[in-house]
Design a binder for these strands. Structure first.
Lengths: 353, 353
DNA sequence: GCTTAGCACTCGAAGACAATGAGTGCTAAG
DNA sequence: CTTAGCACTCATTGTCTTCGAGTGCTAAGC
């Protein structure tokens, strides 16, 4: 049986309607659509064909049809109408993003919340560093009360610090010496290159401050490792309950615990190669638990070796057009925002005087 | 009608049983309890009395009784047995807490998760700074590529930093000058004391680096204000669904959105004066939305002007004994952990050599 | 040869109804 | 004061029926 244009049109109408109503769609409902100039009997025949071809399913004999996974797939790939964001939508997304985003982890959380709001679905947001960073510079600042502050400047423009206690026998000059030593020997190397041998060599030259080296190295390694890692947030799980497919408490519960835990950690992996937006329909999903839900994800670059990913999880029957549109828009806006990198408010404040 | 000991015993048994089973309790079930040496008829009479006194309620004539809010109140205040944590429980709570907690905000999140896990209920965790911090010291570190790092040491031992672009006309010496100037004039003052007048005075003396002052001040004020603010996290909303009272999707949904939003922001206010653990039974709750749920909260001090609060939200029928016990234990352990303040790993690493 | 009106058929949803039984309140005997 | 006994209430459960949306098929129409 070959796929005709009319079949596609029928399929599209069915998916559209099902997305709106969440109820099996009957032939009559389709026949009555404004631009459908066939009787319900004809539609019935087409529907029978579509069912045979695997694009539709019948919950039971006397019910209407619902799209199968294959049906959704076809819909997403070929049939669905471009959804154009209204000015209002675009505006409110922009407003939301414009708000200051401080640190990456906070940002990730915020974005997840925003995406979830915009789509009324649980959302995931991930930022992951690609290559690991290196230490670009050490700074040791004596702080009162017998301690000093270790400042690390990383190759990715991040700056981290830690307050460390100062042993009694170490003075300001020892610190200065150590600082110079560190900056001479221990920069521009990857975390795994902080070997015991290197450390011992440094300690040998560090004099009184030698005891500090292990602490500093430990912190540096930890920081570098962490900065190479992934930040991820999930928001709006509760929104699952807005959708009728999760009226079944047990289903909702299973789904929510899946979201709570980190079954999603491997989602980003799926996006490895593809840039742009991807739709995973039901059984195409990686995680067993997501068999009867769909995932829409968008990956984008944020420069600095930072990779962003935002996605939503929801019923297979979700408004793919709307969701993909919003997601893409989000991704674009975020990319843009990061394109002019964290330029501090200098320009404005300099205008002031 | 006066309250007899036997009435109390009956009430206690009813609440205990209801907490376990979530089903209305009948006279027979109580009569059959091992240490209840009366017939079901006697119990029935007592139950009728307790109902008349407002401690019990009857969903409908032919059902058993369930505790009223007043019943729970009495139970919590007088009747419930001390729940003793098993070694296992205490141990696993300790293990969980021992894991490194980095920054306060991450810590708050983590604690919320742990508490939620330990109680199988949605949990809230709050850390709020009482008095605002002040800047104790400024440090300006020249970083390559035309920028410098502003490091602020706060009175609460926190250290924050920010990378700022350097105008072309400002050199290293200008920075040094500015740094000294800042440390001479702009320390130990509260955020609201960074007045325009003060700023102008500083700028007048700052020479070439004057243009940096507004940026620095802005960041300082922002940081101080933020550090005076409240960190709060909610975790484990999904666990609501584990409890039969939230089988009703609509109820669950309302509850979850309440948790998602910040209807809870004012919860800590309730704890204003009382230290220790408090139980809010159903209608005693502040927020309208929580009318038929209970909240158990514990407040504790963490030194450094940091106040901790952990709490859980759940069905009025919750195991108050167990929950309060775990919460208190958590609070205690956390307090203890913070008592020896963020002592870096120095001792160990110094042992090494 | 495609379209469509007509019709018998299927089957879930919803309502009516009876049976069941847990739980109650009351009374009277111990 | 306690408790056995009993009539009564009423939610729950299961069965049966009705209702109707939707189907597939056939035959007539264009």
């Amino acid at each position: 049986m070959e796929m005709t244009d009319r079949k596609k049109k029928v399929l599209r109408s069915i998916v559209d309607l099902y997305i709106r109503t969440a109820e099996p769609v009957g032939s009559k409902a389709i026949a009555e659509l404004p631009d459908m100039n066939y009787s319900s009997a004809t539609i019935r025949n087409e529907m029978a064909d579509l069912t045979a071809m695997g694009y539709l399913e019948q919950p039971h004999t006397s019910a209407g049809r619902i799209p199968s996974a294959a049906g959704y797939r076809l819909y997403v790939d070929e049939l669905m109408a471009e959804y154009r964001l209204s000015m209002d939508e675009a505006h409110s997304i922009n407003m939301a993003i414009e708000e200051k985003m401080q640190r990456v982890d906070k940002m990730v959380e915020k974005v997840a919340k925003l995406v979830s709001q915009a789509t009324d679905l649980p959302a995931i947001s991930v930022a992951s560093r690609q290559g690991g960073a290196k230490v670009k510079r050490y700074e040791l600042i004596l702080a009162g009360s017998g301690s000093f502050i270790l400042v690390l400047m990383l190759s990715n423009e991040e700056v981290v610090n830690k307050l460390i206690k100062l042993p009694l026998n170490v003075g300001e000059n020892d610190l200065k010496l150590l600082c110079a030593l560190l900056n001479a020997t221990m920069i521009d190397i990857y975390p795994e290159e902080f070997t015991a041998a290197l450390m011992e060599r440094v300690m040998a030259s560090a004099g009184a401050a030698a005891s500090l080296v292990p602490v500093i190295v430990e912190f540096a390694v930890e920081t570098l490792q962490r900065s190479a890692s992934t930040n991820m947030a999930v928001a709006g799980q509760a929104r699952l309950l807005h959708h009728p497919e999760y009226r079944d408490i047990d289903k909702a519960q299973r789904m929510m615990t899946t979201l709570d835990e980190d079954a999603l950690v491997n989602l980003p992996a799926v996006m490895q190669n593809a840039n742009g937006t991807r739709v995973l329909v039901g059984p195409e999903n990686v995680a067993e638990e997501l068999k009867d839900t769909s995932v829409v994800m968008t990956k984008f670059d944020i420069g600095d070796g930072l990779q962003g990913m935002i996605g939503v999880v929801g019923p297979t029957r979700m408004d793919y057009a709307k969701v993909t549109a919003r997601l893409s828009y989000f991704a674009e806006s975020l990319s843009k925002m990061f394109a002019k990198p964290e330029q501090p408010q200098l320009p404005e404040s300099m205008k002031e005087n």
